[in-house]
Design a protein around this nucleic acid. Structure first.
Length: 478
DNA sequence: ATGTGC
């Protein structure tokens, strides 16, 4: 499996130029020997294929949750020169700005005693879940334009949360450069009824407890203590983001020949960053990213209302720690050969992990680096980490995003019984609420790489450091 | 991930 790949450090591997034809730079990925057993050759080939794209800078990178994706591997990170380089939907993913936010409540596990079932049921009622889930919100087409431009701020201005939430979101909950004209009528149509809905697949809203404080000083800065009940929202841009990706992939595929870009894989469809097609994709992608931030903002607000009502606690006593994007392309300044240079960083199933003092992270967290939130798979621990200087130097300020699938959905359904899984988790005190047991089987912990091991690798490689381990108490899913 | 698959 690792034939033709060189180990260049305890946890660092290099895919040399020549692994596939026309590579411009080497590939690099971070992986332990234990995880190397699950490494797919196809994912390594995808990593190498990315290295053939015009204008790629330094390396084609992948995090330890690397697995086979559309064009780019999931867990992939790649930066492109602003003049020579390209932008590619395959480097972002279909679920644009799929991401996670973590909220600390003033409750302890003991406060939940006897009320956990009711909490999960109420959350399930308050937050629409599942494929095609519809929102209770009435949103006009004009409102949708504002959502796509203003992101989380749109939600706050309509009473879903408070202004303080915004500074605790990556990009403050809205990237600049939204181009509503780059979002098709079909994408709009799919987006209008879905603001404030969770979706399906590995998306979830989970009630957790901060079980283990690994870095007490950073935990204090992030405002989280041992035994504290938290909740985590994992979702993205729903049908709108999917449609934006689909629409622009088609346009970019047909524009390829005009730019004389030759690809080893059509799924790498792309265009120069500063071309009509490249700019249009970027503008549409930003709209979807901002939609996702508004979506998570509304969901958090509804969940906070449930906690406030059920436990008689103050709405404002629940505090957003941070919100991170897992699937997005951004223009950022990084060190390239000793000079601060703007590049287009694609993160596809990867989390920004800016270190202490880096621009663009909340002032209150500047001393420790940005919070990095890594969700576990169902029934397993999630982690709060902080970004590092090493990540700035090695991975464009990036780290992993979670576990990575090892069994396909169809195989999972054959090998796992959803009902047994639900009962097993209940036995461990983890309540699961979903529309069907069959949907649960696809998300069973055993169909994913162990997130603990993935997180251990990024911690030991210095790409981000563990602050808190969180254990699930209950979860709602699609 | 996705009004789930050409």
């Amino acid at each position: 499996m690792l034939e033709g790949i060189n180990m260049i450090g305890d946890l660092e591997w290099e895919v040399p130029i020549g692994y596939v034809p026309d590579m411009r730079v080497p590939g690099r990925f971070f992986l332990s020997r234990a995880l190397a057993e699950t490494l797919e050759e196809g994912a390594v080939r995808q990593l190498a294929n990315v290295a053939t794209l015009p204008g790629i800078v330094k390396h084609s990178l992948a995090m330890p949750d690397i697995h086979w994706g559309y064009g780019f591997p999931i867990g992939g990170v790649a930066a492109f020169d602003m003049t020579e380089g390209v932008i590619s939907p395959g480097g972002v993913g279909f679920d644009i700005n799929c991401g996670v936010r973590l909220i600390a409540t003033p409750l302890t596990e003991a406060d939940l005693a006897g009320k956990k079932r009711e909490l999960i049921e109420r959350l399930f009622s308050a937050v629409p879940t599942g494929v095609g889930a519809k929102s209770a919100l009435r949103v006009s087409n004009k409102d949708l334009t504002a959502v796509m431009v203003d992101g989380a701020r749109w939600a706050v201005e309509r009473g879903f949360g408070t202004g303080a939430d915004l500074v605790r979101c990556e990009a403050e909950g809205a990237m600049p450069g939204a181009d509503p004209d780059a979002v098709s009528a079909k994408a709009r149509q799919r987006g209008v009824p879905q603001i404030g809905t969770l979706g399906a697949g590995n998306h979830f809203l989970e009630v957790q407890v901060a079980r283990e404080i690994v870095d007490p000083e950073a935990a204090k800065v992030f405002g989280i203590a041992e035994g504290q009940v938290c909740f985590m929202v994992h979702c993205g841009s729903r049908g709108l983001g999917h449609q934006v990706a689909t629409d622009h992939l088609r346009t970019l595929e047909s524009a390829l020949a005009g730019y004389r870009i030759h690809l080893p894989d059509r799924q790498l469809a792309c265009a120069p960053i500063d071309s009509p097609e490249g700019r249009a994709y970027y503008g549409g992608m930003v709209c979807a990213a901002n939609y996702a931030w508004a979506n998570r903002q509304v969901i958090m607000h509804e969940a906070k209302k449930v906690f406030a009502e059920l436990f008689g606690i103050d709405y404002d006593a629940m505090r957003l720690i941070y919100d991170v994007a897992h699937n997005v392309a951004k223009f950022e300044r990084h060190d390239v050969d000793g000079a601060s240079t703007e590049v287009c960083v694609h993160r596809k199933g990867a989390t920004r992990a800016f270190g202490p003092g880096a621009p663009g992270i909340p002032r209150e967290y500047a001393g420790v680096g940005q919070p990095v939130i890594i969700p576990g798979s169902m029934g397993t621990s999630s982690f709060l980490l902080h970004g590092t200087t090493t990540a700035m130097q090695k991975t464009w300020g990036s780290t992993c995003h979670g576990a990575g699938r090892v069994l396909s959905r169809s195989k999972a359904k054959k090998e796992v019984r959803g009902k047994e899984l639900r009962e097993h988790l209940a036995g461990e005190g983890i309540l699961v609420r979903a529309h069907s047991d069959s949907a649960l089987a696809e998300e069973a912990p055993e169909v994913y790489k162990p997130s603990r091991e993935v997180v251990r690798v990024v911690h030991e490689a210095g790409l981000s450091n563990i602050v808190v381990r969180l254990e699930p108490l209950g979860v709602i899913k699609g």
